[in-house]
Design a binder for these strands. Sequence first.
DNA 1: CCGGATCCGTTTCGATACTG
DNA 2: CAGTATCGAAACGGATCCGG
Lengths: 135, 135
Amino acid sequence: MSATVLRKRRSTCPLNVALEVFGDRWSLLIVRDLLFKRRHTYRDFAGAEERIATNVLADRLARLEAEGILFKKHDPADARRVLYRLTPKGRDLAPVLVEMILWSARYERTAATPAQIREMTEHKARFIAAAKASS
Amino acid sequence: MSATVLRKRRSTCPLNVALEVFGDRWSLLIVRDLLFKRRHTYRDFAGAEERIATNVLADRLARLEAEGILFKKHDPADARRVLYRLTPKGRDLAPVLVEMILWSARYERTAATPAQIREMTEHKARFIAAAKASS
DNA sequence: CCGGATCCGTTTCGATACTG
DNA sequence: CAGTATCGAAACGGATCCGG
């Protein structure tokens, strides 16, 4: 499966380009883990509640790396351990994620608390900056 | 295929809920057509440059209708014709689309013009309001 | 152990042909 | 025109295996 690394672009419509990069069930969940949940290892992603299959996870990590959204790095504290980190391009997906989260919280039953939503709504720019800085 | 209409929620994480609703290659392109391109019929969607297959299109329309994002309506001017329209819930996806478009325009080669991007960036709220109003 | 790769049965996709 | 039917290809998922 991990042969599916770099899909070729078939359209230059901006929305379609974005969907060709991360328009699937899993890619943005990995970005979320990196941006908001301080998860940085393969095990962290695999252990997330959505239970992505390991082969799909490996495929998405390779794809996101090929797209320049994240990169691999050895843990300076333990060279055996591999850490995944967002590039600036990956961090700039934060506004997309925030809008998706706000939409869900408004229209679907979710686990987001009103306080979290209020913070994200009223101080959106600050929230995004903080997520980028801490990721 | 159109048996796959309502997927059951497997998580209450807000981002994951959003991805369960429209986390695929096609759903948001239909919303884009309705919001920004004044396309409202099956033929309009099928004729878009991305060339969605008709069976997938029928499935996504049914799914988005089941999710309360759009609804069908007979054209008042020609009762034989079926029009698709966004609900308020569907129109509120506009900020998600805008952020995705801005991200693509920034990091990928797209057909968006600098003037369009500047308008969407500098007058984001106005742009979104206009799209909602005209959809 | 950790970070995957491989297998394999099932589901979904995508292209095209077809139909009420 | 607005979808269905069909069918091969691709993706998914779960389990297991493997190299460092």
